[in-house]
């Protein structure tokens, strides 16, 4: 009979150079009313197994570090409470579709490269000096891109995307949300450069509108919208390039 004051966690462990393949390890933690999965992992690391590796920082769903598969779904460990999960063992695995570095830590290098590839900064339409004052924007111009600026780079959307699972080179939902954040900004003039970066098979066209990326997003960024409206933009750009004067 399991102790009702304890909760079972099945955690996928992998130690490079020691384990040939990942395998589950079982831990029992002292349960508490408001215990999050992250806190459960921290208590395991503090009291049961100091070698358990996982990323975390803010503990309040703004840093995007503690994304992992919890009971098979991509979630932030800090904002997932044990009491909200069905009774029985909780499975914790590293994010799907990413190479595992160690235990729950995945490689983020590919994602960072994708972010870099879409020019993640405002390329101003007209350079202004400080004396000329700030770039102004109306509330409607802000609303056009604001939600896309809420992305915290947690990569849950990549773990939910089967097309990224099939093709690791696919630019993916998160980077496309960031692209739309800048392309949708009235102060920006980098649209063409960014579109040129996402035309190919590894760009927007790997997406088949599965849409789960938006459902798992902890910040309601709706990356599926960013990807799919840029399919239209990419198609228009392909046909209109014949009319464009360079």
């Amino acid at each position: 009979m399991p102790d009702p004051a304890k909760r079972e966690l099945r955690i996928l462990r992998y130690q490079p150079g020691v384990d040939a393949a990942p395998a589950f390890g079982t831990f029992w933690v002292e349960n508490a009313e408001n215990l999050s999965v992250l806190e459960a992992l921290q208590s395991i690391k503090d009291t049961l197994d100091g070698s358990l590796a996982f990323r975390w920082s803010c503990r309040m769903a703004v840093c995007g570090s503690c994304g992992m598969m919890i009971n098979g779904a991509p979630k932030l460990a800090c904002s997932t409470l044990l009491r909200d999960l069905p009774p029985g063992p909780v499975t914790v695995e590293p994010l799907n579709n990413f190479p595992i570095e160690r235990d729950l830590v995945i490689s983020v290098g590919g994602f960072v490269k994708k972010i870099e590839s879409i020019y993640p900064y405002i390329i101003p339409k007209e350079p202004r000096t400080i004396a000329q004052g700030p770039y102004l924007q109306t509330p409607a111009q802000l609303a056009a891109y604001e939600s896309f600026s809420d992305c915290i780079n947690c990569m849950l959307c990549y773990a939910a995307c089967p097309q990224f699972g099939e093709n690791p080179d696919f630019i993916g939902p998160g980077a496309m949300a960031l692209l739309q954040r800048y392309n949708g900004d009235s102060r920006d003039a980098g649209r063409q450069k960014r579109l040129d970066a996402i035309h190919g098979e590894d760009g927007v066209w790997s997406c088949t509108a599965v849409g789960i990326c938006s459902e798992v997003c902890p910040k309601s960024v709706d990356p599926a919208n960013a990807v799919n409206q840029n399919k239209t933009n990419s198609a228009f750009d392909f046909f209109l390039r014949f009319l464009r004067k360079e």
């Binding site: 109306t138 509330p139 409607a140 609303a143 056009a144 939600s147 949708g184 509108a209 849409g211 938006s214 709706d222 599926a224 919208n225 799919n228 409206q229 399919k231 239209t232």
Partner: peptide, 12 residues
């Protein structure tokens, strides 16, 4: 999901 945000009266 496939169209640009519709902004009416400054709100999506």
């Amino acid at each position: 999901k496939t169209m640009p945000k519709l902004i009416v009266n400054g709100e999506a």
